[in-house]
């Protein structure tokens, strides 16, 4: 079975995603990094689904994809809103609220 390879790929994607989320200052890039993590999840799900010979993994993955789309939609809306109000999507500068 080719399970481990998929899992390793998923883990790598996950790590890259996490790095992106934590390190990129551009809001859009952060959104994309999150997509990477979600895709890592999808790979895992599909792989495991195949491994267990159950469609649940694929179904789960479909739900994730759908929801991720919605999420990114909202996310982009928020980034846009920020951009409109501040003319910047640098996350570092978004720190009005703290303490």
């Amino acid at each position: 079975m080719w399970l481990n390879q998929f899992l390793i790929l998923g883990a790598l994607l996950f790590c890259i995603g996490v790095y992106g989320v934590l390190a990129r200052r551009n809001g859009v890039m952060v959104l994309m990094s999150i997509e990477l993590i979600l895709n890592a999840v999808n790979i895992n799900l599909v792989a495991f689904g195949a491994f267990h010979a159950t469609p649940a993994g694929q179904v789960f993955a479909l739900f994730v994809i759908a929801v991720a789309a919605a999420e990114v939609g909202v996310g982009l809306a928020l980034v846009l809103l920020i951009y409109r109000n501040r003319s910047s999507i640098d996350l570092e500068s978004v720190d009005l609220l703290k303490g």
């Binding site: 899992l7 998923g10 993590i37 999840v41 895992n44 495991f48 267990h52 649940a56 789960f60 994730v64």
Partner: peptide, 16 residues
């Protein structure tokens, strides 16, 4: 996303 990753692992272990 983190949670989902965890879920995928749990799914992987149990297959359900």
């Amino acid at each position: 996303a983190l949670m989902l990753y965890g879920m995928s692992l749990l799914f992987g272990v149990s297959g359900s």
